[in-house]
Write a protein that binds this DNA or RNA. Structure first.
Lengths: 192, 192
DNA sequence: GAAAATTGTTCAATATACTAAACATGTACA
DNA sequence: TGTACATGTTTAGTATATTGAACAATTTTC
């Protein structure tokens, strides 16, 4: 019986290239030698689960993402309508609704959300992976963004860029006015 | 740095026992030696992805079911200084106001705009470099986006992704309602 | 009760995953 | 140019995953 394991090499290489990571950087980050990475990407070896696990951690993806034999259809024109029940991120913060704008399979290192705040609501976020940046545009109302010990009061049309590898939060202090922000999250490590 | 792969041994053993399968039977069914199965279940070895794949087939489960780690350790992040607030610029184009959210020096391959449309206004764009993509979110009103021969009618909250290396345009056909879109332009890292 | 079959665990041998270092091939920079 | 650096590949050696067989421990069958 012939069993073909999934082509994880292609997946790893695709994700690494999309994130603009070199073999050396991914090697340092994952703890797997760059020689091994090269051989895995070119399907020269059958890597161990532990190794693929480390690589997944280094790429900040789920292990399943590397093992999936996903033939991704590269669509030219993709529409995500607002009215329907699109994918929503669940939050434990009351009064905050996060709508996922970008389908994940199109871009691996970019995610976009439309976040709506009711009166007196707050979104608290855990630190993301180092090098991750968030690009925030206030679409409606006003919010207070806190990143570490820095705080900024933003109004409609304001734009803010910040590194979000530390604890950060977005709050709408108005009790009457709702607020809405557009957010782009980029998972791109700094090159050195 | 020690990274612990998920305890697949317990998962395999649990599934095998639930199915009342012996090591010999699972060995025949999966093509993995029973010695290997025993060692994997008792966490004495780090199995290869290919073998775990075979075992999953033998158990008739998804590969992810074996790799699922319920007690996944939380990642520890390093601390970076928070970002600064970005400057703002403005440019005009006949009934269309383009606000540049992200200055060029912050990100080399990403640009963000907030584009406002008066009644009956239209923004025509020349083809960009090959591979360039645009991520469009309608913030207010409704617009009609045309990319090549494709056309879409977008309303508030809608999201659209398209390759813009061909002629494309955004139009607000309403004479009374203004419109506004948030746009992210991503330049492909390709040469020439 | 003992032989035989069944089940899971170790053992020695082999195949190969994994690594560090050298290598090849650019790319930038003076 | 030349020199340095940067990136991916190949090599040689080591660590270990994998296997067939032997082993122990339990259950079955007469």
């Amino acid at each position: 019986m012939e069993i073909n394991p999934p082509a994880i090499g292609k997946n790893i290489q695709r994700l690494r290239n999309n994130r603009k990571l070199t073999l050396n950087v991914l090697s340092e980050r994952s703890g797997v030698s760059k020689a091994m990475l090269s051989q895995i990407e070119s399907d020269k070896v059958n890597p161990t689960v532990a190794t693929v696990w480390k690589i997944a951690r280094g790429l900040n993806v789920e292990l399943n993402d590397l093992l999936d034999a996903q033939g991704e259809p590269k669509r030219v024109f993709s529409l995500n309508p607002a009215g329907d029940e699109g994918p929503k991120l669940e939050t434990h913060d009351k009064g905050v609704t996060i709508k996922i704008l970008s389908p994940l399979h199109m871009v691996e290192d970019l995610e976009m959300y439309l976040i709506s705040f009711d009166g007196h609501s707050k979104l608290e976020s855990e630190p993301h992976y180092p090098g991750t940046q968030e690009y925030l545009t206030v679409v409606k109302g006003a919010v207070e963004v806190t990143v570490g010990e820095n705080t900024a009061e933003l109004h409609k049309g304001d734009f803010l860029v910040y590194h979000c590898d530390i604890e950060h939060s977005i709050a709408n202090h108005s009790s009457t006015q709702p607020a809405q922000v557009h957010m782009v999250v980029r998972f791109s490590p700094e090159k050195r």
